[in-house]
Computed example of a mutant assay.
Amino acid sequence: MRITDISTRRRGLGETEEMGGGKMIRTIVLGVGSFGEKRARAVKESLFGELVGVADADMERAAQVAQRLNVGRFSIDEVFEKETDVMCVATPNKYHTPLTIRALESGKHVLCEKPLSLNAEEVRKMVEASKKTGKFLKMGSNHRYFTSVMRAYEIFKSGELGDIVGFNGRIGNNGERVKESWFWDKEVSGGGTLLDNGCHLIDIARWFMGDFSKVMGVTSNIYWKECPVEDTACGIFVTNNGRMAVISSCWRQMAGYLHFEINGTDGYITVDGRFDTHGGDKVYWQGNGGKTIRCEDFGHIPPNSYVLELDDFYMALQNGRQPEPSGEDGLKIMGMIDAIYKNNGKEVNL
């Protein structure tokens, strides 16, 4: 099933209809800060998911979210004994590895928010636990489910662009949301804007181009001078046959900033999301060697990426298919980011 078929299927199904006669997939969300609550609300809105409850180290916050969503409230210690099919881990990065491993070992499939953990070594433990338990691990990647990005991928898969030659992208936000929060604490976050924002575009670049074999990048602090992690980063990623993806991220962009371009042998495409539309962006493309520049504007479509991602995740589980991006994908992305952090300014073979 194509990614864009998810939206079509949602329009054709009633809100309470189950997929293919199968049971609804019971889900508990671990960590209900701002993003965790978004995940929990998306489960409630999904066609195939049933939100059993939420858990958080802060029991008062868990109780407030549980009350708003009319679901159960659990402590972190008790949640692994609950009857559920899926756990969605949306805590600060430091806790992703231990919570994900406990969830997998308790017999649950896991959707873990990006980045999968602090570094590749920690992610590898998660991937190994997934293999050992036979349970699926998926990295959260809601940017794949922006309507504009899904449309760009559909155009690419149609063959209009020919073979991909290169990728150039920029992403970020104004930094105010993460200012002086746990995102600034390297012990908890693992890194700054490259890990927070850049991983989205690295994932999208791999989705279009495949694996990379070489990386060079730099990080710096340009605006948030007191921030212990980088507020600006740029990476150059090279495939075995020399194709390049150039990706930059920054915590001093416009809020919700996203823009990327893809050059092909027969065409060109750009996703323009520079103005905080979160998926309601414009897509421009030129294909099949022609000169006509076409445009589709998705500004009228309300943001729905978290729900679409969960629908696709649940459909994969229903069909016994590995959800994407997988834990292995997350491990490769983390390895690319680690290479920049450890070798700032130096070229590294992956």
Rank of each mutant, 00 (worst) to 15 (best):
L194G: 12
H143R: 15
G169D: 04
N142E: 13
G191T: 02
R206M: 15
D185I: 12
E128M: 12
K138Q: 15
F146Y: 15
K125L: 12
W207H: 12
K157G: 04
S213D: 14
W182Q: 06
W207Q: 11
T147L: 10
H143N: 12
N174W: 00
R206K: 15
Y145W: 15
S148A: 15
R177G: 01
R144S: 08
R124M: 13
Y153W: 12
K135M: 14
V215Q: 10
W182C: 04
S189Y: 00
K138E: 14
F156V: 08
N168P: 00
D203V: 12
G140T: 09
W184G: 01
Y145A: 03
H200Y: 00
G169C: 07
D185Q: 12
E176S: 09
S213M: 13
L161A: 02
S158L: 05
K157V: 07
D185V: 07
K214Q: 14
D196P: 03
R177S: 07
I204F: 01
S213Q: 13
G169M: 08
R151I: 06
F136G: 03
W207T: 13
T147A: 12
T133I: 05
D203W: 04
C199Y: 08
T133K: 12
F208A: 09
V149M: 05
V188N: 03
L161P: 00
K125F: 01
N173W: 05
L194Y: 09
K131D: 05
N197F: 11
T133F: 05
G210F: 00
W207K: 11
R151N: 07
V178G: 00
R144M: 14
G198F: 02
V165E: 11
R124S: 13
R170Y: 02
M139W: 04
I202S: 08
I155F: 03
S130N: 02
L137T: 06
D196A: 14
D163W: 04
W184L: 03
K186N: 03
S148D: 11
N197C: 15
I164G: 01
K125R: 14
G192L: 11
N142M: 11
G210H: 05
V127C: 05
A205K: 07
F208K: 12
